[in-house]
């Protein structure tokens, strides 16, 4: 009699069809990190697990198997799925794509899992999506060991002043602006808001977007993020309609 595998909290990052009736899933679990698993028979008619095994649905799962791809043995919902609609849904896909690209398999990140869950809840609750996205990117980078320097000037270790403008040099941090230094100009207020996960105003959001895009770039392996393209596409269509 095999002992039952322990349950863990997880979200589906991506699902694809596998053989005739199964699903191949990329999961992000609290204790497991990113793993791949197969849900056997989930696509059979009258199987409600297919309805549960979707992105943004908090799940209790158990797996068995030791190989690269495990088999799901238990699937239960924790609560109803997070209600992401319109641009928030695309933002959710963006989070998933970032995790798929940046997390290695079998590398647990319990703190990031909690932050992911909280970010999804924020995306579902607020119309302003950029602030939660930027904070998530900062946390993700910090978890991976590529955290940004946000509170000290690299040159002399002085604390960042909210009213000052700095040049953020990639792989280094905020420096006093000079002609020799290349990188986006970022105000001290933006850096401090990112450090403290505080709300960002319109200018800060623009600065933070430019900054994080530059910092994330080297870790994405030179390939564009599909969900970012889609996000842009959506907004282009939306503005066309609005105007």
């Amino acid at each position: 009699m095999p002992t039952s595998a322990p349950l863990f909290l997880a979200f589906v990052l991506k699902r694809s069809e596998y053989s005739n009736t199964s699903l191949l899933l990329e999961l992000f679990g609290d204790t497991s990190g990113r793993i791949a698993a197969i849900a056997r028979g989930a696509r059979r008619p009258h199987q409600h697990t297919s309805a549960l095994l979707q992105p943004f649905q908090p799940l209790w799962l158990a797996c068995r198997g030791r190989g690269a791809i495990q088999t799901l043995t238990t699937i239960e919902e924790v609560s109803p799925p997070l209600a992401l609609h319109g641009p928030a849904l695309l933002a959710g896909f963006y989070l998933n794509e970032l995790l798929m690209r940046l997390l290695a398999r079998h590398d647990p990140h319990p703190a990031l899992f909690v932050f992911y869950q909280a970010t999804l809840a924020q995306l579902a609750a607020t119309p302003e999506l950029e602030t939660p996205l930027r904070h998530f990117e900062c946390h993700l980078l910090a978890e991976l060991g590529y955290g940004l320097t946000l509170e000290r000037v690299v040159d002399d270790g002085a604390p960042i002043q909210p009213t000052q403008v700095y040049t953020y040099v990639c792989d280094c941090g905020p420096c006093y602006p000079s002609e020799r230094r290349h990188g986006p100009l970022v105000s001290g207020a933006t850096l401090l808001a990112l450090a403290q996960s505080a709300p960002l105003d319109a200018t800060q959001r623009r600065e933070a977007r430019t900054l994080l895009r530059m910092v994330l770039e080297p870790y994405l392996g030179g390939r564009p993020l599909h969900s970012r393209e889609l996000y842009r596409h959506w907004f282009a269509a939306h503005h066309l309609h609005e105007s």
Binding site: A51, Q54, F56, G86, L89, W234, H238, L240, H241
Partner: peptide, 19 residues
């Protein structure tokens, strides 16, 4: 299909139809 991806697809089409 009423999946998350299906919902995103439906939203994109609805957006275009609204025009």
């Amino acid at each position: 299909s009423p999946t998350v991806e299906g919902r995103a697809t439906a939203q994109l089409i609805t957006e275009r139809a609204a025009r």
